[in-house]
Design a binder for these strands. Structure first.
Lengths: 358, 358
DNA sequence: GTGAAAGCGCTAACAT
DNA sequence: ATGTTAGCGCTTTCAC
């Protein structure tokens, strides 16, 4: 036996076996199973009995080859280990399951090469569609899929005119900043991964700046920290960065509020602050992003921005279905985010949701 | 156009097109691409040029149909949204990618019906193997896959004689309890999802009881809480449960230590304790399970048990490869867990890892 | 209402 | 070293 040969050689039951047992011809079995022609009730039940008896399960590869569609959908995420992406994937999986679509997952793990290799494989698999969740700076990979004729959907992201489902990042953060200003915060630090790669991160940052400008904040009141370390191990990176930086804020008059692009980054800052014994939210306040499960119960409760991953996933999937059926009305869907006020940063009560949940 | 018809009808380039352009016959192209025969350097380069020029990408369905193997692997998890399962999946995805295997993910989302439907679809897809991570009480589903002839691997789980990769739950918890005893804790509460479904949870619980028995603890010192609410929304459920229960511990002499089956459950308890103003770890101590990313930075740092998800995933994948190649030596792999002492429960220093990371 | 027949794109055994 | 050929399991015209 060759080393690379599988021992999957066991005979599987085919449509022919079913046909034979039912005393009909394969195409009849196919028609019964797919309801693609009217079959007499008698033959129908004979066929179904044979299917049952042989425990027949149609071969999806053969079907795909013939039908020129696979009922496979590719989902490429930046990092399946992070709660946001995992929830997006879960949502798409849920929709797909109802539909008998299968999901081929591609986890870039923050690495462009991984993404490329994964997407190329998805193309070979002839996925009926490809949903990119997050990411950026990967035009070449998208082109590859585009040239292969794979319908593409962008989730939590925008790229050229590809159909997309996005959150209203800029406006939400602008609104957030205004609330913070109204609450009396004077000094602002924006803490995020570098924004060059991901457009949605850039939008958030711009919303941050816009909001402050509209409030009339001066340059001295604004500090910005972009750091590569905030990409992968966000908490650790954040803790390391702010363990040093944080002391500087103590000199300033008024409270420093940290606006971050991620709850985990916020936790790193909180951890650093606790270590230094800085009172929260008195001398230092923090706002996260994503509203992960823990954020409601962390002490202090984390003020953050919730994104409905389930809604994002569902919309991506539905957009995909529309695209492959050639019925696209609206190509760009924008979803609202929700500002959630808790203890880590005090927000004025009007207009935002106070969700303590307890 | 029929409603159900896709507009994927665009002609894709096939091996015939490549052969034609290169002036050879399809099988030669196949041989070049798969290195399955020796081809003269000259034809080889001609073929490759044609492949390049036409941007040819082989059709995986056709190949699968012919080869009777799909290079598809199914991964079924209990809940992709939780960090543990997501990391396991990420690890398998990483291994599979290197190998040009694709992963079809099935997320049960804690629902047996979901699992069943998902697995049936995976069977139709003719996955070369199926890795179950976690779960239980689903014999019928496993049988279905078994009868379909799909090689099965169990991860973080044991079922009959199926090849498996597990953690040494019983011994780890036994060891943990002994350390807690040695540290002087007198009162113990075990907090977990019900253990009927998942064998590994049962092992942990038994390790807990064994450890305490060996230490000579009396029945009055032991309390056990199994609750359905700890399955899905673990933190919320935990908080709700212990918000009431926790007060009772204040009457007792000595500190109550909570041994839990999950970090999130531990956080629910911590949140409840903080709300009640109970000093940690003075009057109440907590041990988690899984060592999620946040646990190192939470204040107080969470004493917990780390499981190497990457190692689990890798071992599952490698076991799968061995199984399909018919070379299985050891069918059951047991991995060590790691007890990590932090501030939420004090452990004696000897024999365990003090991982503060800062 | 059912059967006959072709073919989706690829690989593998065999022939040359 | 390359070409010929058959066929994987299914669907889908097209006859009857």
């Amino acid at each position: 036996m060759k080393a690379d040969q599988l021992r999957t050689d066991k005979k599987r039951v085919t449509i022919n076996d079913v046909a034979h047992l039912a005393g009909v011809v394969p195409s009849t079995v196919s028609h019964v199973l797919n309801q693609t022609a009217s079959i007499s009730e008698e033959t129908r039940s004979r066929v179904l009995r044979a299917v049952e008896e042989l425990n027949y399960s149609p071969n999806a590869s053969a079907r795909a080859l013939r039908q020129k569609r696979t009922r496979l959908i590719g989902v490429a995420v930046q990092d399946i280990s992070s709660e946001f992406y995992a929830r997006c994937a879960a949502s798409i999986l849920e929709e797909a399951r109802k539909d008998c679509y299968c999901v081929l997952l591609c986890d870039a793990a923050f690495d462009k090469e991984n993404l490329k290799k994964g997407v190329m494989t998805l193309i070979e698999r002839r996925v009926d569609g490809l949903i990119f969740i997050g990411g950026g700076n990967d035009e070449e990979i998208i082109r590859e899929a585009q040239n292969a004729g794979v319908p593409i959907i962008m989730g939590d992201r925008h790229f050229e005119d590809f159909p997309s489902v996005e959150f209203d990042n800029r406006n939400t953060v602008r609104k957030l900043v205004k609330l913070l200003w109204k609450a009396g915060y004077q000094n602002y630090t924006y803490a995020s991964e570098p924004t060059k790669i991901q457009g949605n991160l850039r939008e958030r940052y711009e919303g941050f700046l816009e909001g402050l400008r509209e409030c009339g904040a001066s340059g001295e009141q604004i500090r910005v920290v972009f750091d590569e370390r905030l990409h992968k191990e966000k908490i650790k990176g954040s803790f390391q960065i702010f363990e040093n930086l944080i002391s500087q804020t103590e000199d300033k008059e008024g409270t420093m509020v940290y606006v971050t692009s991620n709850d985990l980054i916020a936790y790193g800052i909180l951890a650093a602050a606790e270590k230094k014994g800085i009172p929260i939210p008195g001398k230092l306040a923090v706002v996260g992003f994503d509203n992960i499960q823990l954020s409601e119960y962390y002490v202090p409760g984390l003020t953050t921005i919730a994104q409905d991953e389930k809604l994002l996933g569902r919309n991506c999937y539905q957009l995909f279905k529309k695209v492959i059926h050639g019925q696209v009305q609206e190509r760009h869907i924008v979803l609202e985010q929700q500002i959630i006020g808790r203890e880590s940063a005090i927000l004025p009560l009007d207009g935002i949701k106070e969700s303590k949940g307890r």
